[in-house]
Structure formats: structure tokens, C-alpha cells
Design a protein around this nucleic acid. Structure first.
Lengths: 203, 203
DNA sequence: ACCTGAACACCGTTCAAGT
DNA sequence: ACCTGAACACCGTTCAAGT
């Protein structure tokens, strides 16, 4: 058969990404298979490979949208100038997102790409944009020009929030605690950021 | 065919777990399939299901051994009574383990069990034993009897170390930083534990 | 240029048949 | 009691054949 007139190239790509996202939200990322997506959009499995390099490529493109959603969520937490309060607001916004879209969050951060698949540069750029939000908020805690200090703190918080989200979405947090992800995040931010401030004023 | 005289039940279980571990260490958990393990031990795939409920069950049993290894690693960091130094020693021992057995660590914490598979109770008990190590080390920071405070701090550190390990083993840390997992862990422990101490002395 | 459908090389899991 | 080997219902991915 020739190209079907049902959809343009762009429309079909859009359709596929939408169905993939729906599938993940409904059943988790183990349900995201090329064959099921193909069936959901009414094309044969082979057609997907005309639009995506492979399944990992499709995943990365769904994840790009998830990153956009997450960044939008964090944009709602406007900085006030108080590092501890602002960092806490970001952390709570982060977990509001995890709670609203746990399975998209898992696809974004827990799905392991095959070893042939590197993260594209535009993808890592989006993550850096999110980290930059945290950097702006923490900057007042550090001496002007101490970008290394700010960076390290941002990365520590980023990785730590990730860990809380990872244990929470996998059900491994409930095994060990009755506390919510948000409560652990609050303790993390309050005391880590507090510790940063204390170390600096004590120098 | 009847039972083969090659191995007793216990020997075969042992053999399977050993081969599964070897396979994961060599090629990562995506290479851990029932068929490959069966071939490695010289039995048919169906035989595995006589010894394990399913592949998740096999994974959990490999993970039990990994937890044992991890606990042994942490046992080497003997407490001195200084919470910050002791917590740091535990964190560094944790990442020494992650560095030595990254793929076993991934199977333990990043492999998602199917929804039919719950973690057995003896498994969660072993995790609690590890958390108890951290609790003993942090206890001096809290008022006597404030077990809730200790617990919360332990869980925050546990989840945060997990996050650093997760990003490190998935290659998502290098995307964002040149810092090592150990360096981020050091910053986390120093300032979080420092922040805990400051909050308490400032009460 | 792009879609189909078959094909290939894999999976996890079950189970009748054998000893 | 336990092992085999075939079977079932899936996978991701490729590609000749079609339009």
C-alpha cells in the first residue's frame, strides 16, 4: 500500500505519542509496546519504525513532553528570595507532579534505555533548565561567584528528590515508612538547605 | 524424564541463583531471562518453574544475596559516636558497594517487579536491618525517645542515597555533573546531618 | 514515500508426556 | 517427584512487496 491519506506525517507522530502516553498512564510502562501502540493508532507495527528509530526513541519523545509538564509545574512556584522557602516550594511542586503523573514520572526516570540509546542533547538541555530553577533559588546562600557550590547543592537536591520519588513510585517507600514523599522532601530541604546556610554563616 | 541425578534440589537452586547473579553482573538485568539462565545451568526452561514461582521470585532471591553483601559492606563502617562522621562513613561504604556491584545494585533497586509480585517479609526485614545501622548512628542527634525524628532522618538519607545511586548507575548523573556519587553523598550527609544538629541546638 | 504483513529471533510460562 | 520439549501468547525489529 501507499501512504494512507488518513494522516499527515506530523499527525501520525502526534497520534502515536498521545497513545503511548495514554497507555503508560493507564497501565504503566511495561504496557508500552510497539505492537500495542500500533494497534491503538490503527497502523501496522512496521509503520512505527518509519516515524521512530525504535521504541527507545519513542520513549524519549514521550519523556520530552513529560519534562515539559514537570517544568510547567515547577514554574508555578515563584521565588520569593528566601532560599529555604523557595527550595521547599519547588520540592513540593515536584512531588505534586509525581503524585499526579506517577507513571509518566516512572517512564521519564526509571525506564532504562538500551545501551545503544543515548539521551539526545535537547533532552539533557531540558533537564538543565529545570536545574537552573533550583540554582536561582539557592544562589543567595553562596558567595557571589561560587557557582561550584550552587551546582553541587542543586545536584544533591535533584538526586535526593529523585530518590524519594523512585522509592515512592515503586512502592518501596511504604514498605519502610508511613511518611509521604512530601514529608520526607520537607525534611530533606529544610535541613539540607539549613545546613548549607549554617555552614556558610559559620565560615 | 525423571529427576536427573546430577544435582539435588538445593544444589540446583544454588546453581541457578549463581548463574543468574553472574549473568546480571556481566550483562545487566535485561540479560536475565529464564531461558538464558536455564541454558547456562544445562536444564530446560520449564525446570526453573519447579524451583521458582516465576522470574520475579528468582530476582527477589538474587536480591536477598545482594542485600547480604551490602549489609556486610556497611558493617565495616564501625560507629565512633560522632553522628556526622559515622553517617558519612556509612554513605561512603554504600557507594563503595554501588561502585563494585553496580548491576547487582540495579537489580536490587531499579528492577520493577510485576504487579503480581509483592516483596516477601523477610526481604523487607533485611532492609530494616540496614536502616537500623543508620538509626544507631544518628540517634545522638535527637532527644532520648524521639524515635520519630530518628526514623524520619534515616528514611530521608536512605531515599537520598538511593537517588544518587539511581542516577549514577543509569548514567543520568554524568549528564548533569562531573561530580562523583561519593562527592554528592558527602555534601548530602555533611549538610543534612549538620542541619539536623543545628536545628536541635537552636531549639 | 510510506504502509503492510510476514518473517526472524527472541521472550515468560504452562503442561502433557515421560521416567 | 521432577524433567523435557512443545505449545501458547506475547515481544522488537526488519524488509520484500505493494501502491
Amino acid at each position: 500500500m501507499a501512504r494512507r491519506s488518513d494522516h499527515t506525517r506530523e499527525q501520525l507522530t502526534e497520534l502515536v505519542l498521545g497513545e503511548a502516553q495514554r497507555l503508560v498512564e493507564a497501565e504503566g510502562f511495561k504496557a508500552l509496546t510497539a505492537r500495542r501502540v500500533a494497534e491503538a493508532v490503527g497502523y501496522s507495527p512496521g509503520t512505527l519504525y518509519n516515524h521512530f528509530k525504535n521504541l527507545d526513541d519513542l520513549v524519549v519523545q514521550v519523556n520530552a513532553r513529560t519534562l515539559e509538564l514537570l517544568d510547567g509545574e515547577l514554574a508555578g512556584a515563584a521565588p520569593t528570595g528566601d532560599p529555604q522557602a523557595d527550595a521547599l516550594a519547588l520540592a513540593l511542586a515536584y512531588f505534586a507532579f509525581v503524585e499526579r503523573h506517577p507513571r509518566l514520572w516512572e517512564l521519564l526516570f526509571e525506564y532504562r534505555l538500551g545501551q545503544g540509546s543515548e539521551l539526545p542533547r535537547w533532552f539533557t538541555g531540558r533537564i538543565e533548565a529545570i536545574l537552573a530553577r533550583m540554582a536561582r533559588v539557592l544562589a543567595p546562600l553562596f558567595a557571589p561567584g561560587d557557582t561550584a557550590g550552587v551546582e553541587e547543592a542543586v545536584q544533591v537536591l535533584w538526586a535526593s528528590l529523585h530518590g524519594i520519588g523512585s522509592l515512592a513510585t515503586s512502592g518501596k517507600l511504604e514498605v519502610v515508612t508511613a511518611r509521604s514523599a512530601a514529608q520526607l522532601a520537607r525534611s530533606l530541604v529544610v535541613h539540607y538547605v539549613g545546613g548549607l546556610g549554617a555552614a556558610r554563616s559559620g565560615e
